[in-house]
Design a binder for these strands. Structure first.
Lengths: 208, 208
DNA sequence: CTCCCTTGTTTGAACGCTCAATCAAGAGAT
DNA sequence: ATCTCTTGATTGAGCGTTCAAACAAGGGAG
């Protein structure tokens, strides 16, 4: 049960967010949400026309929460932009570790669960992925002078997201952090090589 | 049952494999499978005690089919072990492209759909991931002399799988190949840098 | 202060439908 | 005659959704 002080609509949304993350969308029944939120079906359908609209509202909430609830805490005390990228990945690692590799990224889970062409939901998932990648791209742009000249920071940001999602997927399946750690370590190695190459290029430009 | 078309059990398995890949496990009903396979519910339950056992059998079939149905065709005419890694990724790209980014890797889809602690199924998914990564590791081990000394090929193989799964996930969500291509391009760049570094190390060892 | 009417919210039983799973009966081959 | 496999109607639970009824709070009017 979620706290009873909050208005019903919010209680339902938080309950749904929690359950969708834990059990997925299809396997979470309306009854599950109602029990978790301490509400009745009529209340839910007073605020949301269908179950899908609950999902949409949850995704909106998640989109708006990326910065304040995820990035801000992960980046507290971390100034270096490249370190920030890996601090973000470390935050996901912590989530995995704290839940015995049960849940990693809710967006990823829901993304692969939706197979039907469900335009509004897919759109919302796209927006969530894009927001995440855009924040990472922001870091990379700040570190542009430490990356090889002409580095495609958008492409690299997508690659970071790819590494996170792929690593989470495998770690959840194996119920071990090994795959996630292996992926992040490889990504770190890649970044180290990019930074070294950038330095080498700079030296060459000014004449060794 | 001696001659004639495929036996019922196989028809059911192929139908289930197809539908699980297209629509996912939870959203595929027994009735869907029966219609696709042209069978009756009694027949299905004659061979498989529960729906979950159908899934397990499908995953077994998939595990056994990785080499003959995926790797062998992808590697035909490709001898270089590193090229083979990217030929495999190109095969997935083709699958995505041919289906308008609708389905990529069935294992990944099912892996994120299963949230409950479902030991036998998770075990089978683990085995599938491991088999895939082991084949990639085989390639990398063959190319060991072209990679930096001390390269952890298992870790790198996991990273390749991570890149594939993460890229597929995003491309399916955006219904665009961009994220997949961006991920593979980044991985390619990483490999190029590894190979260059290996050459540099070798030169240094023999004294430039 | 009291009465009525309105507006927004909550209640929980009920509905129609789909689902996974069952079962008794029968077909076909050996 | 036996064993394997098939048929398809049937079961009962659970699903998303609906609905009429109740409730709480407020604002004018008397």
């Amino acid at each position: 049960m979620v706290g009873g002080g909050e208005p019903t609509r919010e209680r339902i949304l938080f309950a749904a967010l929690k359950l969708f993350s834990e059990k997925g969308f299809n396997t979470t029944s309306i009854a599950d949400i109602l029990k978790e939120a301490g509400a009745n079906s009529g209340s839910l359908y007073h605020f949301f026309p269908t179950k899908q609209d609950v999902l949409l509202a949850v995704l909106e909430m998640y989109r708006d929460g990326i910065y304040p609830m995820l990035l801000a805490p992960a980046w507290e005390g971390v100034e270096d932009p490249i370190d920030r990228v890996f601090a973000l990945l470390a935050a996901y690692r912590r989530m995995l570790a704290d839940t015995d590799c049960l849940y990693g990224c809710p967006i990823g889970s829901i993304a692969l669960e939706l197979h039907e062409p469900d335009p509004p939901v897919r759109e919302m998932l796209s927006v969530n992925f894009d927001g995440w990648a855009r924040h990472v791209k922001g870091c990379l742009d700040q570190a542009r002078d430490r990356l090889p000249p002409g580095t495609d920071t958008k492409r690299l940001a997508i690659f970071v997201l790819t590494t996170m999602e792929g690593g989470v997927m495998q770690s959840r399946t194996h119920r071990t952090l090994e795959a996630f750690d292996a992926s992040i370590a490889s990504l770190r190695d890649y970044f180290d090589r990019l930074v070294v190459a950038a330095v080498a290029d700079a030296q060459q430009e000014t004449g060794t």
